[in-house]
Amino acid sequence: MVYPSPGLVNIEGTFPVMGPDMSHLQSLGPMTRYASDLLPMLKVMVGPNVRKLKHEDNGVDLSKVKIYYMEENGNPLDTNVSPDIKRGIQRVLSHMRQKYGTYTRKVHFDGFRDAFLIWVYFIKQTKISIPEKAANSSRLDVIIDLIKYFLNLSVYTLNLLVINAVLALLPSVDSEFGKKYIRLGREMKQEFKTLLGSDGVFIFPTHPEPAIKHMSTILKLSNVSYTTVFNVLGVPVTTCPLGLNKDGLPIGIQIASNPFNDRLTIAVAQELEKAFGGWVSPSKIVC
């Protein structure tokens, strides 16, 4: 799956509707079974913006790509990253070093530890057009909506109501608490951009756990920061499967880069698919 650089794919008509100043929080891209299909699909979706992909017909020279990585976000309140996923990251690094002599470096972004609250406050300061009852709710409204949901009287999903509750219950964007996380987010964006430059990619777990049960993230809400951090950063990301763990559950990583370096993330994903087999059916009846 590719989450392309914001602005590459037209998001007009999608939900929720972001104000133009925060449209980088939302992006649309192709989801395919095989990495080899990602770039052709993305070229079709970007239309006249295809020149911004900086794609070269002779491909990407992976020996010149630098790889930075983190194995976890550093937040002790989040779920520990599965050892299988950490081993998967190390297999990736070892392969790239042995085959291409790739420069690899473990890094640490302090902002990733607070990525959930940073994302929440970036959302709070947006002008998002969502259903009236789910926007700018008071704390009483939040309680009433949740009660209605559990009585099967709500028109909203539980996911939306939970996020809306978080938005309503936290201090405002103009509070010192809110300003702190807006500032941390901006600092994190600049730090990320400076480190990766024009030839770097960043490898990070897709989620701290292998494939999880539907809706279970609600009970571990801040774990979603493993993906939403890249919404805040406004950068392209390609997710890449690394096979199955010992329990037969899919595991994978994310490959991110600076805006409009989508070709780098896709090229690395294509290489890893060749090296590690790419998508693997989790079941005998799924093919």
Rank of each mutant, 00 (worst) to 15 (best):
V229N: 08
S27C: 01
V60T: 12
R105T: 15
P236Q: 02
D247H: 15
V50P: 10
P259S: 07
S175N: 12
V235M: 05
P83F: 12
H108K: 14
T126S: 05
I118E: 00
R91M: 15
L221Q: 08
V46T: 02
S82M: 05
I130E: 14
G111V: 04
V107P: 03
G248S: 11
Y121T: 05
T238Q: 02
Y226I: 05
P16K: 11
V155W: 15
S94T: 15
P131A: 14
Y3M: 02
T102F: 14
H207R: 11
A256E: 02
I212K: 10
N231E: 04
P76I: 10
Y103L: 14
G248R: 09
F177R: 11
T14W: 11
L28D: 06
L249F: 07
V229P: 04
G19H: 08
L233T: 00
E56L: 08
Y3S: 01
L160F: 03
K213Y: 04
M96N: 13
I128V: 13
V232P: 01
L195V: 13
S129V: 14
E271G: 06
Y100E: 10
L77G: 13
L184Y: 07
V162S: 07
P20K: 10
P30H: 01
N73P: 08
S5E: 00
L151S: 06
M215W: 15
Y226T: 02
W119Y: 04
V60Q: 09
L244F: 06
G234M: 08
L264H: 09
G19V: 09
F150L: 06
K284M: 07
Q125V: 01
H108V: 11
S222V: 11
Y149F: 09
H95C: 15
T227V: 10
V280G: 04
N152D: 02
L25E: 04
K99L: 14
T239K: 08
G185N: 04
G252T: 08
S216L: 12
S198E: 15
T194N: 15
K43G: 10
H207S: 12
V9K: 05
A35M: 15
L184D: 06
I118D: 00
P83Y: 07
Y68K: 09
G88F: 03
S281P: 09
V17I: 14
N261D: 10
Q90K: 13
A35Q: 14
A275T: 12
M41A: 11
K220W: 14
G252R: 06
P210I: 02
L146A: 08
S137T: 11
T194K: 15
N223Y: 08
Y121S: 05
I144F: 10
L196S: 05
A211N: 09
G88V: 05
V9S: 02
L39Y: 03
E176K: 15
D141N: 12
V44N: 09
P30W: 00
L244K: 05
L53C: 03
S198F: 15
N10F: 05
D21A: 12
G13D: 08
I266F: 05
V17W: 10
M22C: 11
D21V: 11
L8N: 01
I253A: 01
